[in-house]
């Protein structure tokens, strides 16, 4: 039930679509750059939806004019972490802080085991529910092979 029919994690934009091609990613990056946003690349192997802060792959890229450089970095990240989730995040500085305005996954592990539902009995026959990623049963770095 917790996994959607496509059996992939659906987080951020475009996640119900087939994986973005490099060309499509370039267009999305171009859009973000045209809006004056900066882009960063982040990776993680813990797909829990509440895990907002992923590891940064290098610094966010400021002062960029063209998507080619960022795509190059995306491909670098894919080469370094082929079995991790990798996302591209666009930050807008309009509010005086770099706030996330776009975020989409550009790389995911080959097999995604999905989430299980955990039930907890508490006082007065109350049930508490939580979701748990099967992948996180294994230690960090060994979750997706």
């Amino acid at each position: 039930m917790m996994t959607n029919p496509s059996k992939i994690v659906t987080q951020g934009q475009f996640s119900f679509l087939p994986p973005l091609t490099d060309e499509e990613i370039t267009k999305q990056i171009k859009y973000a750059l045209d809006q004056g946003w900066s882009l960063g690349i982040e990776y993680s192997d813990d797909p829990h939806p509440r895990n907002t802060y992923w590891e940064m792959f290098g610094n966010p890229m400021f002062d960029m004019k063209d998507p080619a450089g960022i795509l190059m970095e995306v491909n670098n990240a894919r080469k370094t972490f082929p079995n991790y989730y990798i996302r591209v995040t666009a930050f807008s500085a309009v509010r005086g802080v770099e706030s996330v305005t776009m975020s989409y996954i550009v790389n995911r592990p080959k097999a995604e085991p999905g989430f299980g539902l955990t039930r907890q009995e508490t006082g007065g026959r109350t049930q508490r529910y939580t979701i748990h990623s099967y992948a996180t049963d294994k230690p960090e770095g060994e979750r997706y092979k």
Partner: peptide, 14 residues
């Protein structure tokens, strides 16, 4: 290497 790559990334498209 990172320094040079940074500059190259900025110059891409130009």
């Amino acid at each position: 290497a990172p320094k040079t790559k940074e500059v190259i990334k900025k110059a891409m498209g130009g």
